[in-house]
């Protein structure tokens, strides 16, 4: 039973996410792409989905969106910073704006190391 209700929650969350994404994208495409961290292609695809298609996408036992943080180590540093002077939220936001590049640059960074 517990597993079933968790499944329902996941599907509800998926649907809420898709509906929110569509609303954001219709209101202001660029700002929405920033907030949702989608590629432009995916954003345009999501924006144009029908209600039936949204339901199809939402009905799965996996979440269809990922965290905006890529690196657990970096996030831990942000959250567990003992010297941090009340800037954790700002710091986390900043980290997410940088996160897009983390994947692309990882190859380069490894070379430096």
């Amino acid at each position: 039973m517990a597993a079933e209700s968790l499944m329902e929650e996941i599907q509800d969350l998926n649907l809420s996410y898709l509906l929110l994404a569509q609303r954001l994208l219709r209101k202001d495409r660029a700002t929405a792409i920033f907030r949702l961290k989608l590629s432009e292609e995916l954003a345009d695809l999501l924006a144009g989905l029908s209600g039936k298609q949204l339901m199809q996408l939402a009905r799965t036992n996996q979440l269809i969106f990922r965290p905006g943080f890529e690196d657990a180590g970096h996030l831990a540093k942000v959250l567990n910073n003992t010297r941090e002077p009340g800037l954790a939220r700002l710091h986390a936001a900043l980290l997410m704006t940088s996160a897009d590049r983390v994947v692309e640059q990882q190859a380069g960074m490894l070379n430096h190391d």
Partner: peptide, 25 residues
């Protein structure tokens, strides 16, 4: 520096990944 970095991070993402022109971004 912290505020500038946050702003510029957002700006850069809008230009590079969100299909915005300079002033729009």
């Amino acid at each position: 520096n912290i505020h500038s970095s946050l702003f510029y991070g957002i700006y850069r993402d809008l230009v590079e990944n969100c299909g915005c022109e300079r002033m729009e971004a």
